[in-house]
Amino acid sequence: MIEIKNLQANVNTDEGPIEILKGISLSIQPGEVHAIMGPNGSGKSTLSYVLAGREDYGVTGGSVSMNGEDLLALEPEERAAAGLFLAFQYPVEIPGVNMSTFLKTSINSIRKQRGEDELDALSLLKLMKTKCKELGISDDMMKRAVNVGFSGGEKKRNEVLQMALLEPKFCVLDETDSGLDIDALKIVADGVNALRDPKRSFLIITHYQRLLDYIKPDVVHVLAGGKIVKTGGPELAQELEKQGYAEIIEAVA
């Protein structure tokens, strides 16, 4: 189970720290999909970075635990080994590092941290081939540098590929729908749906309801001004789409 309790965090800027998250609490049971929706500047991406452990964000209060383990006490790589996965809103380009090297190193780093045997080159190749096929990723893409020259759709598919290969327990998807056309969105959503599992939890961060047509959430939260202002079922997303954020946020204020 994922438990976020009264989480408060700052982003460190050149002008000093700015408070972004002002006390977020939510718990996600294994197998559940939660969505966080909110207007720009509400703290959605900050939440994802704080969970993954980016250094330019400072936690000032609260706690995050994953199956009883204190997530905030871990380094980013330890969080990954513990089973956290963040699908980036803007996947970063890594010139000079090709996809297959990146994936192999990543898989084995995590296996090593988990005390599992590292996979040999042949098993890795087989594993990658199978997963790539499932996601419609060509072998040619494996030879290219990570995200360099990838289209928006390819970048997001690549995130889902990594998710599939690393077998996380808790997946955070940060605006995975941004920059995707409807076909790419469907492929990405299918990939995520294929990973839904009674033991795996999802937190889907999005601005638009559209993604939630394809990945059905169990619970929807509305984030505004660094706080969760409303929580409901999937129908809340529909409501937001109809009425807009302003009305709902005003109603609870």
């Binding site: 250094e55 990954a80 996947p91 890594i94 000079g96 090297t101 780093s109 690393l166």
Partner: peptide, 29 residues
């Protein structure tokens, strides 16, 4: 750059391993 460094760490590489991989890539090109 901090961004690729963080990306690699979030995929399980230690800070040192991530640095090494990025610097190797810089040279290999």
């Amino acid at each position: 750059d901090e961004e690729p460094l963080f990306c690699l760490r979030s995929r399980g590489l230690s800070a040192d391993a991530a640095r090494l991989l990025l610097i190797q890539a810089f040279v290999n090109e």
